[in-house]
Each structure stands twice: as C-alpha cells, then as structure tokens.
Design a binder for these strands. Structure first.
Length: 619
RNA sequence: GCGCCCUUAGCUCAGGUGGAUAGAGCAACAGCCUUCUAAGCUGUGGGUCGGUGGUUCGAAUCCACCAGGGCGCGCCA
C-alpha cells in the first residue's frame, strides 16, 4: 500500500506526514509518531474514516517484551467496535496493510488484538543521525502549541532563609517550567513575594529586636516577646546581621534611650522595608546557589499598594460574584472564638468550591485570598492561558477556591493548576536530621547544598512524584554507586564523553556532523539496539511528562538510559566485538561512536530539563 | 465529622492517563575483576498491587464502600 495523503484525514495535518518516506526522517523526528501515522493510515485504509475520539486513543508504545518486537499498538482494540470488526481480525488486517511501510520489518496480530511491530534495523539506525544533528534540541516538541504558561514557584514569605521544603518546590517548579518549554509551551517562570501581611510584620518586630540587641539593650528576650504584638516569632541567628545593619545606619534613632523600644510609628516602615529587602536578597542568593532563576518577581505589597485587590474585587462584583453572607461554622472542632458574622464573600460555590470564601478580615483588611485573586488577575491580564502554582501540600485545601477565582476572572479562557509538593524528610545514616546551624528550627537549603552539592539536590528532589512524601538520604546523595541516581547518570555521560575523547586521540572523527554520516549497519547487537530504542523514546517521554506535569519522569528515564548504556559498556568486557573503540575496524567503530555520542546528547538533553550539570569526566 | 493526597517485593520506589506473564535499585543467595574508567558485572529467589464488591474484551490504573498513614477545614500565608 503506497503512502497517500487524504486531505480530510486528521493525520494529513501532522508534520509527520510531510516527512513521508524513509531516508528522509528529519531532525527531531519522533519514531513513535512516525509509526503511529503509519498505523492510522493503515486503519483508514482498512476501516475507512473513524471518529476523531477513537483515533486519538490509538497509541504506539514500546513493546513490553522483546519477544513482541519493537513497538506495539492498541489500534485494533480501540477501533474494533467502530469499525464493526473483531479486534483480532482488525489487527490482522492492519498488520497486512502495514507490511509495506518503509520503517516496518514485520507486523503481526497478537493476544487479544495487539499489533506487534518489528522495525527494520535501518529505521532504528536512522534515529542516530537525527539525534546527532538535532543535538540537545532532540526531544523538543510542539504539544504546547505556543500556549502561554505561567509557572509560579517558591513564593515564600521573605521571612528567612529557604529550607528543604521550599527547595523541593523550587526544583519541581523549575524543572516543570523547563519541561513545558521543551514541549513547546511558551513559559514564564515567576516568583510571588508574600511581602504583605502579618508574617512580614512579625519579621519586622524580630529584626527590631536584633537592632535593640545591637545597641546593647538590657531588655530580655522574654520581655520583648511579651511586648511585640504577635510575639517574637523569628528567633534564628540570621536576623543578627540585619539588626547590626540597622544600628549602623540609624544609630539609636529608632529606639528610646537605653536601647528600649520606641513607638512603632517611628521605626516600623523603615525596619520592615530594610528587613524584607535583606531577606529577599538572601532568598535570591539561595535560589542562585540552586541554579534557579525566575524571570519575574511580583511583590504582593506592590500589588496591594496600587489598588489591585480592590480592582479585582470590583471585577468580581461587576460580574455579580460578590455577596455579603454568614458562613456556617467549620465542621469538626470549632475555633474557640467562633461567632457568626456577616462577611464579604466570593461565590466560589458557583465554580465548584464547597463554600463561598471570605475576602475581608474582621478588621476590614483583605484576606490573603483576596490579594491572591488580585495577583492571579494580574497574571491573566498579562495574557497567560495556563497558570500553574507549585505549593506545599499544606495548601491543598486552598486549591478549589483559587481554581474558582481563576475560572471567574479568566472567562473560561484560562485554567489554573496546582502542583502540591509533599514534605521532605532529611535523613543521614538512617537517622532524621532536623536542626540547622543558622536558622535554628529547620534545615536550610544552603546547608543541604553545602553538604551534597547542587546537582544532587536537584536530581534527588526529582526522584519522587511531587505528591508523594520523600526521604532525602544525605549518604546516598554523595555515594558513588549505582543506588545514587545522580552519580549513575552523570557517570554514564562522563563515560560516553571519555570514550569520545579517547577515540579522538586515536584519530577518529568524533564531531556530531561527522558521526551523523557514519554507516550504521553494523549496529545489531541486542544491547546496542536496546539503547537505540531507549534513545528513540525520548521525544515521547517529554511529551507525556509535559502533559502530565510530571518532571520526575525525566529522572527515571535518564536512570534507565544510563543503565542501558552501562550494560553495553560492561558487555564490552566479555564480548570484545562490543567495545566501542577498535582501531582495526574503523567503520564499525564509527557506528559505535555515533551511538555513544547520541547517548551523551540525550543525557544532556534530559539533564538540561532537570537543571543538572552534565559532567565531562569524573576522576 | 467532612474534603484532598497516599498504601505496589524484606526496604526505598517506578509503573508513560485501561493493555499481554506487574518492574528497578538496595538487601539476600550463587558465580565473576589481566580490558575503552570495576566508582563493579552476570544470574537466582522474592508479589493476594491495603481489603471487598463493581464497570468491560481486559483493572495496580476507573467507580463505590471499608481499613491504615499524611494534609487541610472563617478573620495564617
């Protein structure tokens, strides 16, 4: 069956179809997409036009067992009903129709109606030059279709150094943003500075205490604690330098004689501003250590100051989504000071939330939610279609109301998604690690990075699904063994680069352009072909991980890829024919070097998404 | 009390949106190191996918109920 285009066919719009013939598979090709197009064409030929919902469900996946071939498709089982045929029969017809497809060596029906596909070795081989020519851009996708996504992450109160909890959100958010970008979304990385509200006020008081201490106050910590409106909440050492800076700048002008507290009206704004700036600088330095750099920093206080909260509430009001009402008391144990009270409420229930949500506190100021509505309205106004917030799991209860608010403000054009990160327990030698030298009550990001290094922090933070709790094992993170995934993957890359360096020293051409021209027919060992199959799955993996918003899949893929590569490397010890560099067979060596170089490319492509360094050598 | 998340090998965890006989590392057991980097390698054993029902050609995956763990439940963010 010749490959023909049908104008009405859904696949005629696919870029795949323009590459039609074998031998012209272009850069960035996705082997799975190519074969899927073949299967869909066969389906159209055998069963005629089928509804789009059916065609969408047709998958081409890696074969689970090598016995089954290279790829498998569920096409016959999915389409059987609509096609009016039994799955087995349809699969057999599809197999016959696929026999002439240039990539396919053999197709056969199996099991309940699977289509097992064995590729021509040339089709697998052709992936290597495609990968080498594309470089790290291999795997770039188009599923984002240029959609504009805002990924907001970290977004901590600027009240102290970042700790491990923030760190997980930072890594997950950053990797997710990179992943979406790779999949073809237009992504903005953003940080929301929660510099308004009670926590920041408490911070200012805590910094003021350090200021008084710097002046030599005789007041005790307990006395100050009793005196501050919300108590002394931030007691870590990290505010001592801020107190010293305040003393250096203002002398004793912010205190009464004897270094006792003065009227807050005299000092509060100045102290808060300077302290928040200092904390923000600290956080940005921490992010920098972690290799995270958001493009946009938005200040809650600045939004409030320019009236964004009132404006957002007015927008909701104009849409009839605000009312005054009395909420029922919360179920379960009642807060002690509970009393029914009329409040300004957002009609979140119209958008799927359980209750309407308050926008004003009893003192008339805006709730955090009201300010957050203003912030998300701001993001919507900046033209994003998808707003993704990365939060701690303790904010889970907050998701439905935010979703409701974005639905209300975005007129159905904008979706809100939240990624919740569960807690991280740091352990060393099987024992929980809790205290930090600097911050007192928690482990700082800085401690963690100093202990195990940035790459280990980033990689290991991505070795769990974001919504599963995680143990971060400090011993494992620095181990140079297979059970340390960071090491294992970086070592695979270093090994590949090392082989290429040795080859170059022996006079082999190792530039990607040169290797892309290598004759590859000699690559036919199962371990070599398994590695190529893995490399071929990279674009598909990127697409799936991006759709599911699951950056951790990259980590597992790279681990498996590293494993395939190490296996091949090790097999060279027994089977001399598999050793990469063999001076007496330069053509075959060229083929193997192409495989090695392509492996390095894909590892680099994946590490780039994770923000982990592809090391060139480990000594 | 209600809502959300989690429960997969002895341990830590994957499982690509419903596919074929459920996978990996560690630990255990048996072999192996004269080599492009042994910073290990090969093989074996190991499972009631928390439980019970349901949906369909087919369920670890979807639904209902139950058990255990985590998080949350107006004026904190």
């Amino acid at each position: 069956m010749p490959w023909t285009n049908t104008a009405a066919s859904p696949i005629s719009r696919s870029p795949v179809e323009r590459r039609a013939f074998f031998g012209s598979i272009p850069m960035n090709s996705d082997l799975f997409a190519v074969v899927r197009a073949r299967v869909l064409a066969a389906l159209a030929a055998v069963a005629g036009a089928l509804p789009g919902e059916i065609l969408e469900r047709v998958e081409v996946t890696p074969a689970r067992e090598a016995l089954h071939g290279d790829l498998a498709s569920n096409a016959a089982m999915v389409a059987a009903k609509a096609a009016g045929q039994r799955p087995r029969d349809l699969a057999a017809a599809l197999a016959a129709a696929l026999a002439t497809a240039p990539e396919i060596f053999q197709a056969e029906a199996a099991g309940p109606g699977f289509l097992n596909i064995r590729l021509r070795p040339e089709a697998l081989h052709a992936m290597l030059p495609a990968i080498l020519r594309a470089g790290e851009a291999y795997g770039d996708g188009a599923i984002g279709a240029g959609e504009r996504v805002n990924v907001e992450y970290v977004s901590a109160n600027p009240t102290g150094p970042m700790h491990v909890g923030h760190c997980r959100g930072a890594v997950v958010g950053d990797a997710l943003a990179n992943l979406l970008r790779k999949a073809g979304y237009k992504v903005t990385k953003e940080f929301y500075i929660n510099d308004a509200g009670a926590q920041v006020a408490a911070l200012a008081w805590a910094a003021y205490w350090r200021y008084l201490q710097a002046l030599g106050t005789t007041l005790t910590e307990a006395e100050f604690d009793a005196l501050a409106p919300a108590g002394l909440q931030y007691r870590g050492d990290y505010l001592i330098p801020v107190g010293a800076e305040l003393a250096a700048r203002f002398g004793d002008k912010l205190a009464t004689p004897g270094a006792f507290p003065a009227d807050p009206a005299l000092w509060f704004d100045a102290v808060r501003e300077i302290t928040v700036a200092a904390m923000l600088a600290e956080i940005r330095a921490d992010l920098d250590r972690l290799g995270v750099a958001q493009e946009i920093f938005t200040s809650e206080a600045a939004l409030v100051a320019k009236g964004a909260t009132e404006a957002a509430i007015a927008r909701l009001e104009a849409a009839g989504l605000i009312h005054e009402g009395v909420l029922a008391p919360p179920k379960g144990k009642l807060p002690e000071d509970w009393e029914p009270r009329p409040q300004t409420l957002f009609r979140a229930t119209l958008f799927g939330d359980e209750v309407d949500r308050p926008l004003k506190k009893s003192d008339g100021t805006a709730t955090y939610f009201a300010n957050d509505i203003a912030y998300h309205a701001d993001k919507i106004d900046r033209g994003f279609n998808v707003l993704i917030d990365v939060w701690g799991a303790d904010h889970g209860g907050y998701v439905p109301r935010m979703k409701a608010a974005v639905a209300a403000l975005g007129a159905g054009r904008v979706v809100f998604e939240a990624l919740l990160c569960q807690i991280v327990h740091v352990v060393k030698s099987g024992q929980p690690v809790r205290m930090s030298k600097r911050a007192g009550s928690y482990i700082t990001l800085r401690d963690l990075i100093e202990e195990v290094g940035r790459d280990a922090v980033r990689f290991i933070m991505l070795t769990r699904k974001n919504d599963a709790q995680m143990e971060f094992d400090l011993d494992q993170a620095v181990a140079q063994t297979r059970d340390n995934p960071v090491f294992y993957v970086q070592y695979a890359h270093a090994r590949a680069r090392s082989v290429l360096r040795h080859a170059a020293e022996q006079g082999f051409a190792t530039a990607p352009e040169a290797l892309a021209e290598a004759a590859l027919g000699s690559l036919n060992d199962p371990a070599e072909l398994a590695l190529i199959r893995r490399l071929s799955a990279w674009p598909r993996l990127v697409e799936g991980a991006a759709r599911a918003r699951e950056p951790h899949r990259i980590a597992f893929f790279l681990y498996d890829l590293a494993s395939d590569f190490h296996i091949l490397w090790n097999r060279g010890r027994e089977a001399a024919a598999l050793r990469f560099i063999q001076a007496e067979t330069p053509l075959e060596t060229g083929a193997r070097l192409a495989l090695v170089a392509a492996t390095a490319v894909v590892i680099r492509s994946g590490l780039a998404v994770m923000g982990v360094t592809p090391v060139e050598e480990m000594r």
